[in-house]
Design a protein around this nucleic acid. Structure first.
Lengths: 346, 346
DNA sequence: GTGAAAGCGCTAACAG
DNA sequence: CTGTTAGCGCTTTCAC
């Protein structure tokens, strides 16, 4: 099965390849008659552009690369969906890569995307520092936007939510529900999400006079398993359990509520639990999770917009030294979704 | 930021572009000394291959395209992970597309992948008939393997599980747990998964003498919402609810158990519930779901193997008329995972 | 309005 | 062992 080329279409239509190209890409003046002939010939032969050749010629692939820490985390898949959606409106494709939460794999993926000449890259870096070098290097070569998470010491655009503001809402809600002490369960402080959320948690807890036992800061990873483990630790015999458990994401919160069920700890009666992200399964757990809803569609739309702007403003780097002005940091305000894992305010 | 080309490396190393190419792609004999010089130069300049140019020249992209019905279904994302993993071992990349369960979008995605000259395509067709034309057309141009779901009337390789055998296990287990009547909740019979699972359900129910009320066959879509809706219907006042609810996938089953909880129907006391796929959340629901575990890693590995074989056997078509022998249909046997949503056998 | 021709970056003959 | 050269399929000046 040989692929049909522009040359064959040209021959069949009795014109030059230049004309065929003009017709098919809709650029340049071609008489109506010739147009029809060419289209006809292309149709008959089942012609399809060879986007590789086109890309080589145009040095544009109409493809955007996206790298996420984990494709099995529903939050990221929904973010991917939103980005794909937003890109579709611009006639661009998405090339998706999973970094498996490993900065090395992530670096390789980024390099691959550069080699493939994608038009731009959207990345949610898996590590707050170790991802830095690769992200910066990539950003020096291509338009790049960080999404959700970001990495320190780089000068690229970023879109995400205001974690600190979100945590303020969470803590206020828990406080209104009677919480006077709280625990925080997150991942190791090696990515911006956890860092920011933890910072927001700690600050507002202090302001509200909510007690935080140093032993009640449990850092592991973003997984249900870790949530279960952490909860088991919190409610182990001996210590004094907190009134509330604030989780850095929904997966952890799902694990925590599950462990509470298993250990006969009433949620929200004995302890209130909150998540973050509002993944679909958050509403399905028993009890349904109170969580922070991230405006994915808007995050995605902004990211795509920034990427387009960067591309228009001239090939490389998002912000830093050359070219465009300083990089944009867009923090959207998320909203609290109150369900059954917390107590309604007084 | 101009990209470094092979020519610049050649100049810096004082050799020809051909030599550089030979060194960098590891083909052809080059003296050790020159090798070092070239690598050095490439390193200094930060050279990276332009895979677009390479692809145009080689007509090989080392990229495989994958199209799934829905990237937000955890089963498919885990399949994607497995496939990516398997491809990684062959030094190939994955280009992932989401068809949003729409055969038209699916057809466009397939066309795009062809235009992009991927080396092969792995697709789980969203529709049992409407996906047919596009899949066949694509298979005529490129090596293609169907995964999990398949479409009728095509002649391509396929890898998945034996749904009928799986359903036999499910029904036997329910029967042993005392079920004498059962309902089936699935998607519309427009994809092979539901079709096969339904066929398996119906056949074994008959053989075991399990009663199936015609009103207890509920077909909607693969979603939690539909599961909830269906369950509400089954337990609505008036009818006689079944002893067991067999669901065509875990999302549906999650919805069903949730609705049961909401309506105070005891699972598995009053009604047993089973899922299919064994997604991560299956074990988290209350009660944890009994379900069918699909051997994703093996499915993925087989698919990649078949694709490689097809590619080796000569460019196009998976099986059909020309070239290779008849197409392979590989049905792996899945295993039942018994948890708390069913009653242990007598 | 249309054609001829150059060239994107790379690799594979073919010479030497 | 290494260099020269042609050309993958497409777009785009530059002539006519």
């Amino acid at each position: 099965m040989q692929r049909v080329t522009i040359a064959q279409v040209a021959e069949r239509a009795g014109v030059s390849t230049a004309t065929v190209s003009r017709v098919l890409s809709g650029r340049g003046p071609v008489s109506a008659g010739v147009q029809r002939k060419v289209r006809r010939a292309a149709e008959d032969l089942g012609y399809q552009v060879n986007s590789i050749a086109r890309a080589l010629r145009n040095s544009r692939t109409d493809t955007v690369g996206m790298v996420v820490p984990s494709i099995s985390n529903p939050f990221f898949t929904s973010l991917v969906e939103s980005v794909e959606h937003a890109l579709g409106r611009e006639g661009k494709e998405l090339f998706l890569c999973d970094a498996r939460s490993d900065p090395e794999i992530e670096a390789r993926r980024l390099a691959t995307l550069v080699a493939r000449s994608v038009d731009g890259i959207i990345v949610s870096p898996s590590h707050g520092t170790l991802s830095g070098a690769a992200v910066q290097e990539t950003a020096d070569r291509l338009p790049l936007v960080q999404l959700d998470r970001f990495v320190g010491g780089t000068s690229t655009d970023w879109v995400g939510v205001d974690d600190v503001a979100a945590m303020r809402q969470v803590m206020d809600h828990l406080h209104a529900g009677g919480a006077r002490s709280a625990a925080f369960v997150g991942s190791l402080l090696t990515n911006s999400s956890t860092e920011q959320r933890f910072a927001g948690f700690r600050r507002r807890a202090e302001e509200l006079g909510i007690a935080v036992d140093p032993g009640h800061l449990l850092l592991g990873d973003y997984s249900v398993d870790w949530g279960e483990t952490a909860a088991a630790r919190l409610f182990a015999a001996g210590g004094t359990p907190p009134d509330a458990v604030v989780c850095a994401d929904d997966l952890i919160a799902l694990g925590v509520t599950r462990a509470c069920r298993a250990h006969g700890v009433d949620v929200p009666g004995r302890v209130q639990v909150t998540g973050y992200d509002n993944i679909e399964f958050a509403r399905l757990s028993e009890p349904a999770l109170t969580t922070v809803d991230q405006p994915r569609e808007r995050i995605a739309a902004e990211a795509v917009r920034l990427l387009a702007a960067a591309a228009a403003a001239g090939g490389s780097g998002g912000g830093g030294g050359e070219g465009r002005g300083p990089s944009a940091h867009i923090a959207l305000v998320p909203s609290l979704v109150v369900r059954d894992s917390t107590r309604a305010g007084a």
